[in-house]
C-alpha cells in the first residue's frame, strides 16, 4: 500500500458517498446515468468473485463488500425509490457497444484462461469505459448539477491516482500488471475533457456548462 493507492481508494469511496448525498439531498437521480451505474455494479460483481475463495486483507475485503453493496443500493434507489426522477430518454448510450468489446478483449487478454481470471479481465476492460454513458448524457444535456460534477471529479481522481501508484509499484516492488495499466490509462484519458471544464469552471465557482 502506498499513498497514491490509498488516496485513490479514498477518492473512490468519496465519489460514492457524494453520489449518495446528491441523490438524498436533491431527492432525485436526475443527471445520473442508470446505465453507467449498472455497468459499475457489473464491474464489481465480476471482479470480486475472489471474495469467496481468496483472502487478501481486511482492508481489501471491506472495500470489496462496500463497492458491491453500494453499487447495488444505488441501482435500487434509481430503479425504485427515485424512479420518476430518472429520464431514460436522455440515457441512450448503447451498452452493447461496451459489453461486447469488453468480453472479446477479456477472451483475448487474460493472465490465465480460467473463469475468474477472464471475468476479472472483463471487469477491468468494462470499468475503463463504464463512464461513457454518463459522459454521453452530460454531453447531451450540456450541463450538470455541481454535486454531480464533484462525484465525477472524485471518480476521475481515483483513476488518475492509480497511475502514479503503478509507477511507484514498478520501482519498489517490481510489480507490473499490463492489463490493469493499459485499461487504467484509457479510463483516465476519458476524463480529460471533463476535468478541463471542471477545473476551469466549477472550481472557479461557475456552473458546469458545455459550450453549445
Amino acid at each position: 500500500m502506498n499513498l497514491f493507492r490509498l488516496f485513490g481508494d479514498l477518492s473512490h469511496l468519496a465519489s460514492i458517498i457524494i453520489l449518495l448525498q446528491k441523490i438524498r439531498s436533491t431527492r432525485s437521480c436526475r443527471g445520473i446515468s442508470f446505465k453507467t451505474q449498472a455497468l459499475y455494479a457489473t464491474v464489481f460483481i465480476t471482479r470480486y468473485l475472489d471474495l469467496f475463495y481468496d483472502w487478501v486483507s481486511l482492508y481489501n475485503f471491506t472495500m470489496k463488500v462496500f463497492f458491491i453493496a453500494s453499487s447495488c443500493y444505488i441501482l435500487y434507489l434509481m430503479r425504485y425509490k427515485y424512479r420518476p426522477t430518472h429520464d431514460p430518454s436522455i440515457d441512450t448510450f448503447r451498452v452493447e457497444y461496451l459489453l461486447g468489446p469488453s468480453a472479446v478483449l477479456a477472451l483475448l487478454f487474460h493472465y490465465r484462461f480460467t473463469v475468474p481470471e477472464v471475468f476479472w479481465s472483463f471487469s477491468i476492460f468494462l470499468e475503463a469505459v463504464a463512464i461513457l454513458p454518463q459522459l454521453f448524457m452530460l454531453q447531451r444535456t450540456g450541463e450538470a448539477e455541481t454535486i454531480t460534477t464533484h462525484y465525477l471529479a472524485a471518480l476521475g481522481a481515483y483513476r488518475a491516482l492509480y497511475i502514479p501508484n503503478w509507477i511507484y509499484r514498478y520501482f519498489t516492488e517490481d510489480m507490473v500488471d499490463p492489463i490493469a495499466v493499459t485499461a487504467g490509462i484509457v479510463q483516465t484519458a476519458l476524463y480529460l475533457d471533463f476535468f478541463y471544464v471542471y477545473f476551469t469552471k466549477v472550481l472557479q465557482g461557475q456552473k458546469f456548462e458545455l459550450p453549445a
Binding site: 481508494d9 473512490h12 493472465y111 492509480y162 490493469a180
Partner: peptide, 10 residues
C-alpha cells in the same frame, strides 16, 4: 502466460 499479478488492488 506468467502467473497473474496478485489481485490486491481494487
Amino acid at each position: 502466460h506468467e502467473a497473474p499479478p496478485t489481485k490486491d488492488e481494487l
